[in-house]
Nucleic acid binder design. Structure first.
Lengths: 198, 198, 198, 198
DNA sequence: CATGAATGAGGTTTCATTCAT
DNA sequence: CATGAATGAAACCTCATTCAT
């Protein structure tokens, strides 16, 4: 479907995400990707040496968005809490428009069992954690969040919530607004741990 | 290994969990379970009609613990926030002593793609959510948690955190105390959303 | 179903015929017979050393009826053509009341590929042929059938018709009267090859 | 053996017929066909999605010959009884030169138990019946066969004979001339049911 | 570059049969 | 006698990957 508009190599990444979303990572196979893309199975191996290299490209595509968000946040001159809001809002908006991509958020552990993918997954998770922890630390420094807050735990809570709500959204058949729900939750988090002013 | 001590049928559930933890749900096969258990492949099919029926037994085993915890919490005459503490503490202690079981918490989405398992997974998740939401609602009623808190969102946060910290624990090679970490996080949650007394 | 009324050993023969009729000789298995009979799989091997020995018992049961018919025909003091009529009428009546048994008439070739069964099948077919050929020869001797008729070919025609009409009866879902059809065909045969009297 | 001369896909049909003839439909397996053809088992599934689809191709190949015969008969401007002679003579000649194909004539009932094959078998049998019934009806119209003859019954007799003599031919180890025997029988049939001229 | 045929390993499942109880 | 657990072989089928064209 996306075939002629973009290069085959990139199209295969999108097709793979589509297949994972449609039938699950467990039922993913080169044949299914080839069918989704409308090419032969052999053709895929012209572009990617192995199935796991294709999955690596999927993870690259996935983490590339992370990098973009993180850079953008840095460039915008926002307060730390505003940055946190901005960050989750950006993800939620993106995911809402490209729901298949949320499938990737749910299969970290599965992919981690493939040796070729483990490093990539680990750094992806670490980057997300560190970025959020950094923002929270900034917020503490700037007196936006209470000083006694454990920034690592709070970052874990936030990403944990985000992945959990993505799962609920998928389970519901995309039946609610991911964006609104995430926005409300982010506000809850920031209000709860902010410095209370009299 | 566990062969002669307990019935084969139950041993297969434990062996399956062990294999999932060792090599991942994606690489799980009847053959591998048979090897882990020290029986032939055919023998498994005397006890479970299919691979998915075996996985269903794994999920039953997994959710049985949930039921036990929920009942125990109900029996103990604790305040709502104490119950929440008790609940997560119980899980963390159990999981710390049986770390392989945490593998199951990470593969909901994968299993949901198997039609025979989807209902089970969905009810398992719904039960956890409803139980926690109930406790939070109780806490609100009892003035332990602030009345403006959205109990569903808070429950999502807590279970999201719990699954996320389980993942981190696994990724770290069980390098920290799950129990301590979860205890701290639960306190953070309850403090943050509790009614502030002057 | 037939369990307690008759001995298990004989019940197994009937159950086997039932299963062959229900799901086909290709899908016949010891397990299916055991289920039909309501016993364990192992129990069958108490009575029959192997699957093929059970099938041999089925063929014995099947050919026993042939013997009975042949003897009865001999005892009745009928003309040769009357005997032929009587013979096919007896079969048609029996098969109409026990339709499952017709399944056996359709699987000679399949069973012949099992070395342990081949001799039995061959003699069963030879006996039917010889018996009918003998009656036809008698009819020729008695001037009931024209002298130039090749009795072996005519016997082949008659048994061929009989098996073919059994197949059609089965395919139709037993939708017509096997007895009437066979009676008409037998008359057609005997009229066509009889000595024409002026 | 037939490998490089003709396409694999068509070769597989011939190999399958060979295997059925050699070891029986009951012992037919993809593995045996692969061995007969000299390819791997997986290779077969590139050409046929399943075992039953391969068997369907066998039946197509088998019924294709029927169609050819029926069309040829129609084209030749023969009398009805000549057509009947021609038809059976053609089959007998073909089968005599390709004896393995007669195996297919003996396994209708077995194949009918496979849902994917039933329709094909049923139409194959119906076509043969209707064609022969049509010829007989023509013969009656043309005063070649007596008007009181039930054409459906006669067609059943003829096909029944043909299948029965094929079975005997196979059982005898191809020890007699199928062509001569069938020719004689056809003459017997047509003489017996023809209009007697003074 | 792309295709389509092929492979060999491995997947789930069924089967006939054995044997301790 | 009967059961139920177990086995080892074989069934059908899918998979990642290779390679000639």
């Amino acid at each position: 479907m996306v075939k002629s508009l973009i290069h085959t190599k990139e199209g295969l990444v999108l097709s793979t995400i589509e297949v994972i979303n449609d039938i699950g990572i467990n039922n993913l196979s080169i044949r299914k990707v080839a069918m989704q893309q409308g090419v032969s199975e052999g053709a895929i191996f012209r572009h990617y040496k192995s199935k796991n290299e294709l999955l690596l490209a999927v993870l690259d595509y996935f983490s590339k968005y992370d990098s973009d968000v993180f850079v953008t946040v840095q460039l915008n001159k926002l307060t730390a809490t505003e940055s946190i809001h901005y960050c989750f809002n950006t993800y939620a908006t993106y995911y809402e428009n490209y729901s298949a991509i949320t499938a990737i958020t749910q299969i970290y552990e599965v992919l981690r069992y493939e040796p070729e993918l483990r490093t990539k997954i680990d750094s992806l998770i670490a980057n997300r954690m560190n970025f959020m922890k950094g923002l929270i630390d900034d917020a503490i420094t700037n007196n936006e969040i209470a000083p006694y807050v454990n920034s690592e735990q709070l970052a874990t809570m936030m990403w944990g919530y985000f992945r959990e709500i993505c799962m609920q959204w998928r389970m519901s058949g995309l039946a609610f607004s991911l964006r609104d729900r995430v926005h409300e939750a982010t506000s809850m988090f920031l209000d709860a741990f902010c410095v209370k002013h009299q």
